[in-house]
Nucleic acid binder design. Structure first.
Lengths: 238, 238
DNA sequence: AATTTTGAATTAATCGATAATATGATTCAA
DNA sequence: TTGAATCATATTATCGATTAATTCAAAATT
């Protein structure tokens, strides 16, 4: 609580605004910041030992991403969650898979195949390194996302592929929120990923589509059930 | 040029950041701010008679929207354009129509139908009020967007419908950029819109899909040709 | 000539303070 | 009691100044 700048992580030299953006984003996605929670500027300033500007810039970015809701003159709030929203999200992802998977398998070349293999390997390693793949370890979460992206990467439609990435993070948020209060976190069977990779590389379009959509829908159903049992997180904010 | 605050436009009471966000966004979409143009904070401060905060917040928002590109420590630039980008954009829109139109026509109820009729009417009126529908008059541009959204509004997938809206604005930007140096701007034949509305309300799914995709592709091709002839705007920025 | 170094000028990022607005409790009137 | 009005407090939004980083050109070096 007295250091300064640091910056330059993956990037050459990040601004404080970019660093804090990443951090807050991560805390929202992992549920460290609860849905509906008020984000008071003064509080955040103290918590992260920063001035107003970088924090407000970060929150402005997050509000465009819909991870934060901004009310003019009344500040910022962590985006709420709802079962309806989860459903719409799931639905959108499945629809987009319907477009992107056939295209990607059709256009994918050798490099695309090899990238899938690498991403699968990294995902498995990451899972091996720490107990739970996606919950605690940020690197593992990234590996998970990279793997899913690698499948559709050859679809050649950056707008849609990027959008899928966004939706992935949103789903991830729901997953992590749901299992937050749980002992045994839901662990994606590595088997399932291996099957996806295999089916993709061997151009079994229908199988890949089926696997991905099922994967997405099953996880969503699980989350939905947990919410049903435990109630929605963040219902305790005004 | 010494007024202050004003704020509250459409909204109850907007912040300066929100107002300037809207304004800069509009200037980028209409081409008043050219692709690749450097957005110097100091310059913008003077131009709009504002302090740093609202302007930086606006630019941070725009960078998440990809209308502006941010380089950490090196400021902001109006997002560049390219024929490749236009093509990807067009492609993505057509794909999404493939999902959204069938769904919307299937689920659309009476209210949905009536909304289409109203949007069509407003679009026609807006065109009648000023010479060119979409180029100069912001209200007409909005009417145009509203009409296109009204067709797919009943698809029931807010993430995808919102995303379509974003893509619409991007296409609009290309269209406006291309005709910027032109005497006779491309005017969407109001006929075409009437046909769309009719086909949608009468649930002729294939016709609507065909009309929308053709509409999008034809405009894109036109823009593409103009770029080919005139060169890409914004090639004169470093 | 090409590259590196240096340093002034420019520009970006950030801070701390102020102004504007909202919130919530309290009083007052009905 | 209810509801409006008032005021004190908390919070947000904005500004102006400071600090940090980049750029660019001139000088020095190879």
């Amino acid at each position: 609580m007295g250091r300064r700048n640091l910056g330059d992580e993956a990037n050459g030299r990040a601004t404080l605004a970019s660093s804090i953006y990443e951090q807050i984003r991560d805390e929202i996605v992992t549920g460290a910041l609860a849905p509906g929670e008020k984000l008071r500027i003064e509080q955040l300033k103290q918590r992260y030992d920063l001035g107003t500007s970088p924090i407000r810039e970060a929150l402005n970015r997050l509000s465009m991403e819909k991870l934060v809701v901004q009310f003019d003159q009344r500040g910022f709030v962590v985006a709420p969650v709802s079962q309806e929203d989860l459903h719409e999200l799931t639905d959108a992802r499945c629809s987009l898979y319907g477009i992107l998977i056939p295209r990607s398998l059709e256009q994918g070349d050798t490099q695309w195949e090899e990238n899938i293999v690498i991403c699968l390997h990294r995902l498995n390693r990451a899972q091996w390194l720490v107990g739970d793949p996606a919950r605690l370890n940020p690197a593992a979460r990234m590996a998970h996302r990279d793997f899913h992206r690698s499948i559709i990467a050859a679809a050649g439609s950056p707008p849609l592929v990027d959008f899928m990435d966004t939706l992935f993070d949103f789903s991830e948020r729901y997953r992590l929120l749901a299992q937050q209060n749980r002992e045994a976190p839901h662990r994606p069977t590595s088997n399932e990923h291996a099957e996806m990779a295999d089916a993709a590389i061997n151009r079994r379009t229908n199988d890949v589509l089926e696997l991905c959509q099922t994967h997405v829908r099953r996880t969503a159903a699980l989350v939905d059930r947990l919410f049903e049992e435990q109630g929605l997180p963040g219902s305790n904010y005004r």
